[in-house]
Each structure stands twice: as C-alpha cells, then as structure tokens.
C-alpha cells in the first residue's frame, strides 16, 4: 500500500472500552489512516450505513453477553475486510469460528493491530 492509498483508508473501530478505543484511534491516525469509532453494535451499524468503511477492527465481547456478530455479518455482506480482537477466546469461540478472518488476541499492542490492518488490504 502506498502512502496516498493509506490516506484514503477509513477504519471502523468497534470497542466497548473507551481507553482502548482512544489508543487505537490515535495509533491509526498516527499511521495515516482515518478512523470512525463505535462503542456499541448499534453505533457501529449506524456508522456503516452512513459510510461503508474500508476495513474494521472489531472487539468480540462488548459486555453483558453482547458480541460484535451483527456488525461482522453486515461487513461480510458488504465485502469489507475486518479483523477480530478478543481477550476471551473461550467465550468468543463461536463468533470466531463463524468468520474466517484474522484474530488478534487481547492484549495486542495498538501498533501491531495497525500492521495487521495494513495486511488486510
């Protein structure tokens, strides 16, 4: 990917932990990517309808038994590549198995997620 291509990429971030969201946003922006951030499934779906992102990083477990599954389904429909980010592989197993996408365990430093995002495109 060239620098100019990177400028045009928009990454959707779905993460319920505000500090992690903040860190990811800064890291990705620092790497020359554009970000849209969501801390809930509804917010993420809303953002996708407004503008389809180029790539996405989805936290699997969003608390209280909610997972990123509806967002992953929508992105898969739209053909948007994404990666899953999870700290609980036991409980996320079903979601992870459903989608054949890269899985980044938590904790993974933000800059490694950026590398993985670049590898998606």
């Amino acid at each position: 990917m060239t620098a100019s291509e990177a400028d045009t990429l928009t990454v959707l971030l779905l993460e319920d932990e505000a500090l992690i969201l903040w860190d990811l946003e800064e890291e990705l922006r620092g790497a020359g990517l554009k970000t849209v951030a969501a801390n809930s499934v509804d917010r993420a779906l809303d953002l996708i309808e407004r503008r389809v992102p180029d790539v996405a990083i989805l936290d699997v477990n969003l608390g209280a038994g909610v997972t990123c599954e509806p967002v992953a389904d929508r992105l898969a429909e739209l053909g948007v590549p994404f990666l899953l980010h999870s700290g609980d592989l036991d409980r996320s197993g079903e979601v992870i198995r459903r989608f054949d996408v890269p899985l980044m365990p938590k904790p993974t430093p933000a800059y490694r997620l950026v590398e993985a995002i670049r590898a998606l495109r």
């Binding site: 932990e17 500090l19 992690i20 903040w22 860190d23 990811l24 800064e26 890291e27 620092g30 477990n61 700290g87 609980d88 036991d90 409980r91 365990p105 938590k106 904790p107 430093p109 933000a110």
Partner: peptide
Amino acid sequence: SRELSHRMKNMFSVIGAIVNITGRAQGMQ
C-alpha cells in the same frame, strides 16, 4: 477463573492504552 482471566487480559489492554496515550502526549512514542 475464565471471567478472571478475561478481566485480567482486559486490564492489561487498558494499561497498555494508558501508557500509549500518555507516551504520545509526551512525545515519547
């Protein structure tokens, strides 16, 4: 123990985020 393990990993992710955010603000990436 699964819940504890999940929370611990999450805690380390959050610590990492705080360190990064602070480091960037201080220009010590």
